Simulated assay, not measured.
Amino acid sequence: MISVYNFIGSWQLFPEKGIYELGSRPKSGICIIAGTTDTKGISINNSWVTLENDAFSSQYQLQADDALHNYPDTDFAESVKMELISSIQFYIYFYKNEEVILKVKHELLQNGYLKITQDGFAANGKQYINTEIYHKQMSVLPYASAASGAMIKPTEAGVIKHKALSAMEEQTNMQLDQIRRQIELLALQAQEIQMRKELSMIIYNAKLSFSPVVGSVYYLYQKNDDTHFLSMIGPQQWSKGSAYKNYIAQVKLLADHTWVEM
């Protein structure tokens, strides 16, 4: 017997992973899926916070019997049906005037994430597809915040509860951005050192007819036999028939005895 057990839990939205053809990307969201008392259906509680810090929520119950049931918010839909495909996939269909106006697909991905795909029609009749990715929380929070609800009703309590969440997200995102910038800077510095090391290896394996001076600028060339040599003469100063194949770079000797390309 197919069960919805794998879906039960509190799922937190990855806002940056979503694709929204209708509406704007929310700041945060949580989808709480719970079993019903009769064990034949599920309860879905969605709520989310917009970029403007407005909180919205929706809550409804479904029976996994592939049959039509009355939907409480008749302004949105007249009936709803849940189709349980497997233990990792089910569909929810919302009907109005005997036509499907919204199809919501829930599926568990191989990495353990929950993917919710909304396939519906906007008020102007244009079809849209919204996709959201969630990760499962270790504990169920006493509130929710997701963008995939059919009933949309603003809640003052949700705004209050999400103030702390919004402040926390803002601070942690700021700290993560700072760390990310530091990592990028370190990566650039490491790349620069690696380039200096590779250039230095070429120069120290090249032919040197003089002793280089720290801080001075020289010119690196490649000969016809593909070996290298260092010279104090620039490429514009050579006479015709010069004894080099390619001019490589203008280089400078640093205090740590590495070479850098100018």
Rank of each mutant, 00 (worst) to 15 (best):
I2R: 03
S3Q: 14
V4T: 13
V4N: 09
I8Q: 15
E16V: 03
G18V: 03
I19N: 11
G23E: 13
G23H: 10
G23S: 10
I30S: 02
I32E: 14
I32C: 06
I33G: 01
G35Y: 10
T37Q: 10
T39H: 14
T39F: 12
T39D: 14
N45Y: 14
S47H: 08
W48G: 10
W48Q: 08
L51F: 06
S57T: 14
S57D: 14
A64T: 01
A64S: 04
D73C: 01
T74E: 13
T74N: 07
D75M: 11
D75T: 06
A77P: 01
S79L: 02
K81N: 08
K81C: 12
M82F: 04
L84W: 12
I85Y: 03
I85L: 10
Y91E: 13
L102D: 08
L102R: 08
E107I: 01
L108H: 05
L108T: 04
L108Y: 06
L108I: 15
L114C: 04
K115H: 13
K115P: 00
D119L: 09
A122H: 10
A123M: 11
T131K: 09
I133H: 10
S139C: 07
V140D: 14
Y143T: 13
S145H: 09
A146D: 15
G149K: 02
A150D: 14
P154M: 12
A157P: 00
A157D: 15
K163A: 13
E169P: 00
E169W: 06
E170Q: 06
N173M: 07
D177C: 01
Q178C: 09
R181D: 14
E184H: 09
L186W: 05
A187G: 01
A190M: 05
R196L: 11
R196D: 15
R196T: 05
I202P: 00
A206M: 05
S211R: 06
P212H: 07
V213Q: 13
V214D: 06
S216L: 07
V217R: 02
V217K: 05
Y219I: 04
Y221M: 06
K223D: 13
N224V: 04
F229C: 09
S242N: 14
Q250G: 11
L253F: 07
L253A: 02
A255S: 15
V260H: 04
V260Y: 05
E261H: 00
E261L: 03
